[in-house]
């Protein structure tokens, strides 16, 4: 299975994950500083800054896009409960 590497900059931890994993699944397990509310892409609590490797995440769904716009999320930000890791290397930190 293809692997990807996600780095949580705030805690200085990189995790090798199988492709298809969502950020929420990893971040909660390693104790990164991203906080969650609804966990289903509506509340925008888990807004996360993608420092690099944004192209290695699945593009945002229409719903995620709308929530990001509604909350005036800056460029390069995603919802950790929605963003799915496709491969390669990604560096993130809480927004």
């Amino acid at each position: 299975m293809p692997k990807a590497k996600v780095t949580f900059q705030d805690i200085g931890v990189s995790v090798t994950v199988p492709a298809g994993t969502r950020l929420i699944e990893v971040s909660e397990k390693v104790g990164a500083g991203i906080t969650y509310g609804c966990r289903e892409g509506e509340c925008c609590t888990c807004l996360t800054k993608i420092i690099s490797g944004g192209e290695n995440l699945a593009p945002p769904s229409i719903l995620e896009d709308q929530v990001l716009k509604d909350n005036m999320a800056p460029r390069g930000h995603r919802l950790a409960c929605q963003a799915q890791i496709l491969g390669g290397e990604i560096v993130v930190k809480p927004a």
Binding site: G12, V13, S14, V15, T16, P18, T21, V26, K29, V30
Partner: peptide, 18 residues
């Protein structure tokens, strides 16, 4: 170590996480 920025970068595999 975290406060002084002297923390070692850790690399782990997702399978090793409980």
């Amino acid at each position: 170590r975290h406060l002084t920025g002297r923390v070692e970068h850790r690399e782990i595999d997702m399978a090793a996480l409980a």
